[in-house]
Write a protein that binds this DNA or RNA. Structure first.
Ligand code: SF4
Ligand code: SF4
Lengths: 145, 145
DNA sequence: ATATTTGCAGACAAAATACTCTTAATTCTT
DNA sequence: AAGAATTAAGAGTATTTTGTCTGCAAATAT
């Protein structure tokens, strides 16, 4: 079950790492994060670039540069992150993956899927990045072999 | 959002089609289904082969051959179909896609994901193929351009 | 028996996704 | 001003998923 693509996963892990280690205003060095989280540096860089372009992060080049939040983790919803990482239509697409259909001519699964989808959407909309971090004391975002 | 892979989607659409058109014991011709549902014949064939191998369908070769159910649509759960189509570990994997972690060293999202996952699993376990068909009168499994 | 219809199996091709590398632009340090 | 550190951008490669093709095996019909 790949609700979230690999790159989306990496993005979320990085953001969660940042939210968990937020010792004030500092920028997070991407190289350090990629080492820490065992993600390819260049790949992570590209993913975070997108988040910067979408206005979720800000970036700074040069020595001690890095990426940082623009809003506080409390103000960032999981839904907006997922939309940024996976595409704006994330919650609009059929969960089955079928394009272009809806209420007008629903397939036998439609009512069923809509229920599941709306639940998921509601949960994502009402969950902040900060909320996610509260669920555990461990900041275990690395892979566990 | 690709909860279910393309091939899984094709498999489900075919099964739903079969469940909806079950005029007694007959076998469904794969070519007819692939035409009807706009799925590549060979690809669909391969997907249904797997379902046959996993004991969800039975097949018959030769003239008027095809594939058919072994159990009634009421007895087939969505969960077992998804497990057959997407892999037995479908409900065990991290929704995020991370391998090999669990309660022992949960990441900040763990509790959150487990809740969503268990809900989904429960729904899938208690929903039969027949239930899915009941959700609408239209048997609209084709793409809607 | 032989030919026809069907599913089975595996090799092959194309497309999407994931990952790597090289170069440029920006900021800091001295 | 020069050089080092760091992200940005985009080309290039690898892997996975999706889809196609070709021939074989089983069942039927004549
Ligand atoms: S009608 Fe069926 S295929 Fe279309 S959006 Fe609804 S669930 Fe998806
Ligand atoms: S700890 Fe995090 S990464 Fe691991 S299974 Fe739970 S949610 Fe997934």
């Amino acid at each position: 079950m790949r609700v979230i693509s690999k790159s989306g996963e990496y993005g979320l892990r990085a953001l969660l790492h940042m939210a968990s280690n937020q010792d004030n205003e500092r920028f997070f060095n991407i190289r350090e994060m990629s080492d820490e989280l065992d993600i390819s540096f260049h790949f992570l860089t590209k993913i975070l670039q997108v988040l910067t372009q979408k206005g979720i992060l800000q970036s700074y080049r040069g020595p001690n540069g890095g990426v940082g939040f623009l809003k506080s983790a409390e103000e960032i919803t999981l839904a907006e992150l997922v939309r940024a990482l996976e595409g704006d239509d994330f919650f609009d697409k059929c969960l089955l993956g079928l394009p272009g259909c809806g209420e007008r001519q629903p397939c036998p699964m439609h009512a069923y899927w809509m229920g599941i989808r709306n639940n998921l959407k509601d949960e994502f909309e009402t969950t902040s990045l900060a909320d996610l971090g509260k669920n555990t004391r461990l900041q275990h975002l690395r892979l566990i072999a």
